[in-house]
Design a protein around this nucleic acid. Structure first.
Lengths: 210, 210
DNA sequence: AAATTTCTGTTGCATTTGCAACAAAGTTGT
DNA sequence: ACAACTTTGTTGCAAATGCAACAGAAATTT
């Protein structure tokens, strides 16, 4: 099974005439795509950061999700929602690969190697994406803020093979990711510090238990 | 793009010697699989109902997820968690297809039709699964119980092309799905009834607005 | 290098939610 | 057809969380 990095390099090197795939760069703040009337669109974030945003009828902005490098997104992966439109905004300068669902299903006539490699890499990426979504669901279903934070820290700690790690995004974004009020989260972080469960300097966290 | 029903029928009819795929029936209450030391295992629920359960160190049982017909599950799709083991329990009599991740990636020597059809159908199923996971995340990230309920009802209403619909699972399971306390949910349902937003008779709901 | 915007950190207060506990209705197993 | 279990429905109370508001630090733009 290829690593995400290998897959990413493969996607970046893509330049095939049988594959209907295109890539584009975006500057911070630009709209990458909208999830409406773009049936079967799929995208891969090759580098940078983006976020999935909803504006409801009142014009309220909600950050629904955070998209990082190597993540797959697009309307095909998202429930059709009649009520309101979703936007993907570039949070930093970034590069995005676009294609449609058909690319996966149809084989090219010549049965070329690039084509089947693309298909397999995509498979792996979608499976990884599923794991990421299941991870977030696990965190979101924790009963309280403390459990959400500690479970998330546990994951980062395991990934980093260390009790110390740096949060991969801002505290504001972390609150969105865990779907909790930012100030309530800050309060809970303060309690965890006071009670000696964690040490925290900015975005650097150290777990002090076990 | 094939429908889920077509895919399901295809999987049920599978009987190929080049594909390393097997199916088994389970009675209500049986353990279908555990997510540990079964690397790369993937499963499809062909019919019936199952649930994903965690027992933590204290022996507390938590229902993490509900698996319905046509859903894909298994360790490959789930974050590795060093701390505790996950079980899939048959909630009703059910039938499950088992295979490993390799089946997707490797082509058989003869490049047989069944094999590639399997691969494509699996692709579609995983994409559908991603949509389901994204749907649940959208619901879980709603700020309060009322929004969770109404958003979920909206989805069911759209799917059913009607303001009336029947909940696909018990109220107890609904509370788990939305990750809210059951009694708090019942209270909120009572309020929604009082305030004239919905009508409710058992599991049959009718939306009264718009 | 000044101005603007975003992010971090904190607090008081009101509201929502979870918890515990119980009774009645409905299901399932023997 | 009886017993055991599960699901639905309700309530009082305590605790957790969200909201509003603000100030200082950090980052970004001009």
């Amino acid at each position: 099974m290829p690593t995400e990095l290998e897959i990413l390099n493969f996607f970046k090197s893509l330049n095939s005439n049988c594959l209907k795939v295109s890539s584009r760069s975006f500057a911070r703040g630009e709209t990458v795509t909208t999830y409406i009337e773009k049936r079967n669109q799929m995208c891969i974030l090759l580098n940078g950061e983006a976020e999935l945003i909803r504006y409801d009828f009142n014009g309220n902005k909600t950050i629904i999700g955070h998209i990082s490098s190597n993540e797959i997104f697009g309307e095909s992966l998202y429930p059709a929602n009649t009520n309101n439109e979703l936007f993907v905004l570039a949070k930093s300068d970034c590069e995005v690969l676009f294609f449609t669902y058909n690319v996966i299903l149809k084989k090219c006539k010549t049965n070329c190697k690039i084509h089947s490699e693309f298909s397999q890499n995509l498979h792996t990426l979608i499976l990884n994406q599923t794991v990421k979504l299941n991870t977030r669901i696990e965190l979101l279903t924790k009963k309280n803020i403390r459990d959400k934070l500690l479970s998330y820290f546990e994951i980062l700690s395991n990934k980093n093979l260390s009790k110390s790690f740096t949060l991969p995004f801002s505290l504001t974004d972390l609150a969105d990711y865990l779907s909790i009020d930012r100030s309530a989260m800050m309060r809970e972080l303060a309690h965890l510090k006071e009670e000696g469960f964690i040490q925290k300097k900015g975005k650097k966290i150290t777990l002090l238990y076990e």
